[in-house]
């Protein structure tokens, strides 16, 4: 009498297992398609973000150059009467934003050295060197400006003479 019960139980168990197996197969098939879609979407999102980021960086670089160009005329005018500034080429601003180094691209010898502009205040000398490192320019001091070091030299000479005279007297 126990056998039919056992058989019955086994059949039920097998049935349940079969149902379970069928059910697992069914779940597994629909879950694989969803992951792929999600990953695709994520990839697309990442690519979009990367593109947008790249575009932003490019636009920042462009804005940087744009500003450099816009300021060129102002700089040129700010030196009017002292130093003639000749901007060279269509895009004289040559600084690069994504350069890890300093912006400086020193030209040797600098115009400060070429024209012996060491009589100018140190800060102005530094800015002139920076100007020619940022821009393709030619600098030419005005005649009036170059009279200043001559007079300064004369004054120093006279002062030295007076000092010597004072010591002799």
């Amino acid at each position: 009498m126990a056998l039919p019960w056992l058989i019955g139980a086994a059949v039920v168990a097998l049935g349940a297992a079969a149902v379970s197996a069928f059910s697992d197969d069914s779940d597994s098939g629909s879950g694989g398609n969803g992951d792929e879609e999600r990953r695709r979407r994520e990839r697309a999102e990442q690519e979009r973000k990367a593109r947008a980021h790249k575009e932003k960086l490019e636009s920042m670089k462009e804005a940087f150059v744009q500003e450099g160009m816009q300021r060129a005329n102002d700089l040129q005018q700010s030196l009017e009467g002292q130093i003639k500034v000749i901007l060279l080429g269509n895009k004289p601003f040559k600084a690069i934003l994504d350069n890890d180094e300093e912006y400086h691209n020193p030209v040797s010898p600098t115009y400060v050295e070429v024209y012996d502009l060491q009589f100018l205040p140190q800060g102005t000398q530094d800015y002139l060197v920076k100007l020619e490192s940022l821009y393709d320019v030619e600098l030419e001091p005005e005649e009036e400006l170059m009279k200043v070091p001559v007079r300064l030299k004369e004054i120093d000479h006279k002062l030295a003479q007076l000092k010597a005279l004072r010591e002799k007297l």
């Binding site: 102002d74 009467g81 940022l134 200043v148 007079r151 004054i155």
Partner: peptide, 30 residues
């Protein structure tokens, strides 16, 4: 003479300072 030099280049110095600050800021942002 030295005072005149300072004032004659004051506008240029200011313009360069402003450019320098702007470039530094933009570089940091970048």
């Amino acid at each position: 003479l030295e005072d005149n030099l300072y004032w004659n280049f004051a506008r240029f110095n200011d313009a360069m300072l402003s450019l320098d600050l702007s470039m530094t800021l933009k570089k940091v942002e970048y």
